[in-house]
Design a protein around this nucleic acid. Sequence first.
DNA 1: CGGTATCCACAGGGATACTG
DNA 2: CAGTATCCCTGTGGATACCG
Lengths: 135, 135
Amino acid sequence: MENQDLKSEKKFKEYFNLANSSRNFSCPVRDVVAHVSDKWSLLVVYALAGDGTLRFNELKSKIGDVSQRMLTVTVRKLEQDGLVKRTIYPEVPPRVEYQLTSLGMELLNKLVPLIDWAQENSNLIISSRKKAAKY
Amino acid sequence: MENQDLKSEKKFKEYFNLANSSRNFSCPVRDVVAHVSDKWSLLVVYALAGDGTLRFNELKSKIGDVSQRMLTVTVRKLEQDGLVKRTIYPEVPPRVEYQLTSLGMELLNKLVPLIDWAQENSNLIISSRKKAAKY
DNA sequence: CGGTATCCACAGGGATACTG
DNA sequence: CAGTATCCCTGTGGATACCG
């Protein structure tokens, strides 16, 4: 257990240096995490994970309450990060398809345990929050 | 593989309903994830994971560039969610100690693979982003 | 169909000063 | 020591209108 603590301590310092090296240079870990944890990225990744390939409006209707603008911004960011592949078919009317890259699928695999945990414990967390709000 | 897709599809719908049930009611999954993925929560959780117990200013100096205000806000949020325990010792000068709850440690365990992945692939992602920015 | 462009509101978060 | 209180600035994201 002490060994565990030591390992944990060492690991923290490692991450910490990466995460906090400077406020001027972007920090990789915080940066990458921020990109997947914004309001829509998670839902886009999950939508593509479920269906494999989706067109713009399929994605939009699947998520439901996302605005056209934010969906565009989100998929562009994911595309630039190399997590999502965007394929344009030069037809009329235009057709654009989105799918996860292998990097995107890797990310998804890391995300699943977190989401599972969040789902399982959300009641606990939310009730804890409400109890605190009473006072 | 088809079975995998089917499972994945089913899972998405499940999460999606939880995550997107309404824009008026808070969505548990998005909500919980948002709370740990804001600018400081991750670093606070990691700091406490490394040291077990920390006082306010220890936490502050360990993170480094966090303002007093934001550290207060962050630990309060984590406390309300039941992820962090806050213990006040009625002394002069006051002493306040923070530590992860068991729920907080569970969360940490789910977070570690994600952070590891982010650290390992940050170069890939950032270079991909820069390449895209050129055009 | 799959986007841009523009405008705007609001919440997150920083700096500073003060306090039990 | 461990916070509050206040002010203000920025970025995120929504609504709407237009475009190839």
